[in-house]
């Protein structure tokens, strides 16, 4: 009895404190994601300000009430530029993540269902493409098109479907030998029907999670490409472009044109990753219990 009462509170407080931390993390992440989405959707139509308005008399002003994030070397308001930049980066991130997930899921399910030489061939292609560094391949793809939002999204999507394809294929291979698939085969189901009715719904939660986790990654890639001057054209504010344009002023001691776009990359991507992590723990409770041990 004494042993029980001594041991239980310690175990409990450990579990509850972890749970409380997780709840706080989820709430903060959700609030930040909501704020990001609202800012990106509402600010441009509601605030009738021109993000490209140049005012050379107000160039490189430090943060103040009039310009909370300061101004850049052409006197443009950085807060407004950051929101517009986030809008473009988020658009690229979401489109690229969705495209990569659809492509990866289709390839993974087909390889897993068809098996045999199709599976071997497809997975060797996946291995070959993944052996080239993502950024290098992305640069190659972007360089084939005129600079713009879509080439960047396509480049990120074409370099990031591989991991999803691997995850989905592995999941399909493990599901394929379950007795309920045998039962479907015995009930006269075609390969296509087994894939669409039984296997695809089973891998969708995993694929959706992979898509959400990929959004921040795709945003980082967009920023990297833009920073290298290969992504979006310089007049289009994206977070990578903003940081790239501000490099010179950083050396002159003006920190705000680099810091705020940097925070605008880090905070939303961490928030999205935090929400996705909580979701992963939820759909895979075994993992959580393993972590508890």
């Amino acid at each position: 009895m004494t042993c029980d009462s001594a041991a239980e509170p310690a175990w409990r407080s450990y579990g509850t404190s972890r749970r409380a931390t997780r709840a706080v993390r989820v709430r903060v992440s959700a609030a930040l994601v909501a704020a990001t989405v609202l800012a990106v959707l509402l600010v441009p139509p509601l605030v009738q300000l021109d993000q490209q308005a140049v005012d050379l008399s107000a160039k490189l002003l430090p943060p103040s009430w009039a310009h909370p994030f300061g101004t850049d070397d052409l006197g443009r308001d950085l807060l407004l530029r950051c929101v517009y930049g986030l809008r473009v980066s988020l658009l690229v991130g979401v489109v690229a993540a969705l495209a990569a997930t659809v492509l990866g899921t289709a390839v993974g399910v087909s390889a897993g269902v068809l098996g045999g030489w199709v599976d071997r061939g497809v997975m060797r292609v996946v291995d070959t493409v993944s052996s080239v560094p993502h950024l290098l391949l992305g640069i190659f793809i972007v360089a084939m098109f005129r600079p713009g939002v879509w080439p960047v999204a396509v480049s990120v999507a074409l370099t990031h479907w591989l991991s999803t394809a691997r995850i989905v294929r592995a999941e399909v291979l493990s599901l394929r030998s379950r007795p309920y698939i045998d039962a479907a085969v015995s009930g006269g189901a075609s390969r296509w029907r087994v894939a669409v009715r039984h296997l695809l719904p089973a891998v969708l939660p995993q694929a959706a999670l992979a898509a959400v986790l990929m959004v921040p990654h795709a945003m980082w890639h967009e920023s990297a490409l833009s920073f290298l001057g290969l992504g979006l054209p310089t007049h289009l504010a994206s977070l990578g472009n903003l940081i790239q344009g501000a490099r010179g002023s950083l050396l002159a001691g003006q920190w705000w044109p680099t810091l705020f776009p940097g925070l605008f990359i880090i905070v939303p991507t961490l928030a999205i990753a935090g929400l996705a992590g909580a979701w992963r723990e939820r759909i895979n409770p075994r993992r959580r219990s393993e972590l508890m041990l």
Binding site: Y180, D182, S186, P201, A202
Partner: peptide, 18 residues
Amino acid sequence: RTVLGVVFQQPRLAADPR
């Protein structure tokens, strides 16, 4: 395939959970 009906040992594994 359909002229043969099969019942498996473990119903949990033989039923699509969805």
